[in-house]
């Protein structure tokens, strides 16, 4: 290593701006490649796949998973995990149903309540795991049960039909093919990537996940940042709950069972490390798209549910393997 350093020492010029741009684009190239590959395969296998209908239906089915995966990306980056996202989504959905269907609240009054409720769940997760030093796996596993129970209690285990007052959020806007939900999700992705790569908050999250002890010894208090990340994940779940409810016009305490696994899968496909310190919101979004394209493509070519599961599982493992290879290649270069 000594030798390698000394060889390069003499000239100090930076690689050009273009090289930097290229490198950051290259980061996404792998994901885009896989995505296009999948689209190509499915359009060859099924005549109907590459149509506006399929693409808008995919776009309008993913907003809830997308926003949750953005929150999850931050959680994984600080080296934590949040298993309670599905249940928190259900709490938000249930609360929306109770407030609007049973108490006749307006949407604009009910939405802040939903977001606040799940933010509180996230705060609870964060406080307990950070302040008491309990692994977030355990705390959020507890919250997974608690929040689901609360959702059932609120609705007496009944689904609640809300109807047209929420439907518009999930339906494509006339002439645009995209729903307000989807647009919000895209805004969240862009904002998330911006926060992660450009702000103090994002930088500290990366640092905490990379080496918490070094952060502490640098004189930075990491607890507020870690707790904030859990709160953000909670808020994202609240948002996702509203999106899901609007898509079905119905509040369902049973909603999103097992969604935490899909969200973690999306992050991992996008190259986020479960050990913390590495991840990208944009790549997580590509991860979500890959999962969605697989689901809908497999359905169109008539694959049975068991087959879909086998293939989805395999894709997750292959994606992570490829990422590991790419990492090693990058290091040995």
């Amino acid at each position: 290593m000594e030798r390698r350093d000394s060889k390069i020492t003499t000239h100090l010029q930076e690689p050009s701006r273009g090289a930097h741009m290229l490198r950051s684009l290259l980061q996404y190239a792998a994901m885009v490649g896989v995505l296009l590959g999948l689209v190509l395969i499915f359009s060859l296998m099924s005549n109907n796949f590459l149509s506006m209908t399929t693409l808008t239906s995919i776009a309008n089915s993913i907003p809830d998973l997308t926003v949750i995966a953005v929150g999850m990306t931050f959680i994984l980056i600080i080296g934590g995990i949040d298993l309670s996202v599905g249940s928190m989504l259900a709490v938000s959905s249930a609360l929306l149903g109770v407030l609007m269907a049973d108490h006749g609240w307006s949407l604009s009054a009910a939405v802040p309540c939903c977001l606040l409720a799940t933010a509180f769940c996230g705060l609870f997760n964060g406080l307990i795991s950070v302040k008491a030093g309990i692994p977030s796996f355990i705390v959020t596993l507890g919250m997974l049960e608690i929040a689901r129970g609360v959702a059932y209690l609120m609705t007496d285990s009944q689904t609640k039909y809300i109807g047209s007052s929420v439907e518009w959020i999930g339906t494509p806007i006339q002439g645009m093919f995209l729903s307000p939900s989807f647009i919000v999700a895209i805004v969240v992705v862009i904002a998330g990537q911006f926060v992660l790569s450009r702000t103090l908050f994002g930088r500290y999250c990366m640092a905490i996940g990379t080496n918490a002890e070094a952060v502490r010894m640098s004189g930075i208090r990491s607890a507020p940042y870690s707790i904030a990340v859990f709160v953000i994940s909670g808020v994202m779940c609240g948002l996702a709950g509203i999106m899901q409810t609007s898509r079905l016009s119905t509040a369902d305490p049973n909603a999103a069972v097992g969604l935490e696994l899909a969200a973690i899968a999306a992050c991992v496909i996008g190259g986020t490390s479960l050990m913390g310190g590495r991840g990208s919101v944009i790549n997580t979004f590509f991860g979500v798209l890959i999962i969605a394209v697989l689901q809908s493509g497999l359905a169109q070519i008539g694959a049975s549910d068991p087959t879909k599961r086998v293939i989805t599982g395999s894709v997750i493992i292959i994606a992570v393997l490829l990422d590991a290879v790419r990492q090693r290649w990058g290091r040995n270069r």
């Binding site: 640092a207 080496n211 070094a214």
Partner: peptide
């Protein structure tokens, strides 16, 4: 390595 640096950064 343990308490001074973020090695992969």
């Amino acid at each position: 390595k343990k308490s001074g640096l973020l090695l992969p950064q």
